[in-house]
């Protein structure tokens, strides 16, 4: 499974998203469930799934699905 697919699954599970949500277009606070609390749950889920540790700056900067994906790729997580 690709990193993008795995990340999409993490978003769906962590934020408890319904099937009709376009996950790859999501932005922080773009939906009610991705609020500040959801963000921290999401961070924990991403760290667990990909075995990485996000520092505070990365947590703050993770403003969209695409940014999260780029962040993971920048940390050496690849397909």
């Amino acid at each position: 499974m690709s990193v993008a697919s795995r990340l999409s699954t993490v978003f769906v599970d962590a934020l408890e998203l319904s099937d009709d949500v376009d996950v790859e277009q999501l932005k922080y606070r773009g939906i009610d469930k991705w609020d500040s609390l959801g963000h921290m749950t999401l961070v924990a889920a991403i760290e667990d799934e990909f075995g990485v540790q996000l520092d505070t700056e990365q947590v703050i900067d993770m403003s969209s699905f695409q940014v999260a994906l780029e962040m993971l790729e920048g940390m050496g997580v690849h397909d």
Partner: peptide, 10 residues
């Protein structure tokens, strides 16, 4: 508190 919360949220 921040560090503890990040662990406890899991």
């Amino acid at each position: 508190v921040q560090a503890a919360a990040r662990v406890m949220m899991r």
